[in-house]
């Protein structure tokens, strides 16, 4: 059976924090989500066996939380340089604020962005603001990484940041103390075999997203003579 599914998803498995799986599903708009929702409804109506699978999966879950968040370019750092197809890990910072302090948070993060610009860091991040699904105001900063070693770069940058922040450093600390309800930072590994991405996305790193069959199969094919050059 070949299903034409209406959206993509990238599955992330926790490396730190509580053991969990996080699905990162890209959309353009709520209208896009609505169309996907409707199409999935039709798919499930046409394939009753999927409903059974769904029930089995639901019975295996200990907990599930779904949220939708929107990108905040003004709080992101060089987000236009991010290529998600090249990432292997995501560092995710979740920041929950006390109500009514979004403006101060934005001020602090813009200051942080300016400081990172001074360091010329090549570790871009993208910030999303919670729209629906959990207590707000909440923000998420995603740092895509090719390797976990890039966390060392992040640690080294912290030593440079106070100087780069300059006079704004104390103000940013004041804001953090006053408006942050809590923060949590975790690392996730991208699981290509559990993800479903478009051909265009996979083309960004075909070896990772569309791995070749295991070697024994290729050896078997050669032995059968299928790969012999024609004369």
């Amino acid at each position: 059976m070949n299903l034409d599914v209406p959206n993509s998803w990238i599955v992330l498995e926790s490396v730190t924090g509580d053991s969990e799986v996080l699905s990162f599903d890209p959309f353009d708009s709520f209208a896009h989500i609505g169309k996907a929702f409707a199409k999935w409804g039709a798919i499930y109506a046409a394939h009753a066996e999927l409903g059974k699978f769904q029930a089995q999966i639901n019975s295996a879950l200990a907990s599930k939380r779904t949220i939708v968040a929107e990108r905040r370019d003004d709080l992101s750092y060089r987000a236009n340089r991010i290529d998600l197809s090249k990432a292997r890990f995501l560092r995710v910072l979740e920041i929950r604020l006390h109500p009514g302090h979004e403006r101060e948070f934005a001020e602090a993060f813009k200051g942080l962005t300016a400081a990172y610009e001074k360091t010329e860091s090549d570790l871009p991040w993208v910030v999303y603001q919670l729209n629906v699904g959990m207590p707000s105001p909440t923000f998420f900063a995603f740092v895509p990484m090719r390797t976990l070693a890039q966390n060392d770069d992040l640690r080294n940058l912290r030593d440079l940041l106070p100087e780069a922040k300059g006079e704004a450093a104390e103000r940013m600390q004041q804001i953090a103390r006053a408006v942050y309800a809590n923060t949590e930072s975790n690392l996730y590994a991208i699981s290509p075999e559990k993800s479903h991405v478009s051909k265009e996305f996979a083309a960004g790193d075909p070896e990772f997203w569309t791995p070749q069959p295991p070697a024994p199969m290729r050896v078997a094919a050669k032995k059968s003579g299928k790969n012999k050059p024609t004369q």
């Binding site: 509580d18 053991s19 969990e20 799986v21 996080l22 699905s23 990162f24 599903d25 890209p26 959309f27 353009d28 708009s29 709520f30 896009h32 989500i33 879950l61 200990a62 907990s63 599930k64 939380r65 779904t66 949220i67 939708v68 968040a69 929107e70 990108r71 999303y128 729209n131 699904g133 998420f140």
Partner: peptide, 9 residues
């Protein structure tokens, strides 16, 4: 522009 995040344990 939008991301749906689904946390599952």
């Amino acid at each position: 522009k939008l991301v749906m995040l689904v946390y599952q344990r």
